[in-house]
């Protein structure tokens, strides 16, 4: 019984937590970046086409990484392709997910032994959320992968963990502060109060305190790459993004 087939007399209200509402919306509209590489891509196409019909889950293909929530790496990742995958992954906006489809992108698949030009698992380059085994996985298996991803999204939370929240606030107070997004050009506009003569006592007004903050901001340098916390390290090793449901990786 859904809501829609009932008749209500008054306008109605549903009370849910923000988190469940957000997650519910996100999990039911997963737009995927089609990253068809090899044979698995054909099965991905078949999943999107008439019989299996991705659309009924709200899953729509997008051709641009910037509009996508999840990337399906479908097929064999070669060494020549690896850096391109990383680049496309970095262009996706957070929150982003990766589904690795097929043995090849899980671990090298049939090419793990003598495949000199094959990357042995896409997780050497980008973090993977769901692994779908098979060579190629059936469309049903890919759908199952999506259901697993939905489960993962349902479990996500917007509430900060208390300890990290405190640590974050402390670090932002010392480094960027309230003006952390200032560009160097903007910072140049702020008069250098102490060098400019009239010393302002720090305790006097709110203005002064803010100016002092700004000065702090000038001396401390923001650690490079603090924003892209999910980007892999320079050596291409995946970071410790939690991998849910590693369904298995051996061919």
């Amino acid at each position: 019984m859904g809501f829609l087939d009932k008749k209500y007399h008054d306008p109605n209200i549903i009370i849910v937590s923000l988190e469940s509402a957000l997650n519910w919306a996100r999990k039911n509209s997963l737009w995927y970046e089609q990253f068809g590489l090899a044979c698995c891509a054909i099965e991905m196409m078949a999943t999107a086409a008439s019989r299996y019909d991705f659309d009924r889950f709200g899953i729509i293909p997008r051709s641009s990484p910037r509009q996508a929530d999840v990337m399906i790496v479908a097929g064999t990742v070669t060494l020549k392709m690896a850096s391109r995958i990383l680049r496309l992954y970095e262009q996706m906006s957070e929150p982003r997910y990766v589904i690795s489809m097929g043995s090849c992108s899980n671990c090298g698949g049939p090419y793990w032994e003598h495949g000199y030009h094959v990357l042995k698992g896409v997780d050497k380059v980008i973090p993977v959320d769901v692994y779908v085994p098979g060579c190629p996985p059936r469309p049903e298996a890919l759908l199952e992968g999506f259901l697993k991803l939905q489960e993962k999204i349902t479990g996500e939370t917007v509430i900060e963990d208390r300890a990290t929240a405190v640590a974050d606030r402390e670090s932002s107070a010392t480094s960027a502060g309230t003006t952390g997004t200032e560009t160097p050009a903007e910072r140049d506009l702020v008069p250098d109060l102490q060098a400019g003569g009239s010393p302002v006592p720090k305790t006097s007004t709110g203005d002064g305190a803010e100016a002092a903050d700004r000065q702090d901001a000038e001396v401390s340098t923001r650690p490079a790459g603090a924003a892209g916390d999910d980007a892999p390290g320079p050596d291409g090793a995946p970071q410790d993004k939690p991998k849910s449901n590693p369904q298995g990786g051996t061919p």
Binding site: L37, A38, C39, G75, T76, T78, K80, M81, R84, P110, Y111, E113, H114, G115, Y116, H117, V118
Partner: peptide
């Protein structure tokens, strides 16, 4: 070459003509 999967290397390394068949599929 973005999908070069070393078919010809496999054909030599597998040491068996019959084992090559699944790789021709791919």
């Amino acid at each position: 070459g973005y999908l070069h999967r070393c078919f010809e290397k496999y054909a030599e390394e597998l040491q068996d003509y019959a084992k090559v068949i699944p790789y021709t599929d791919r």
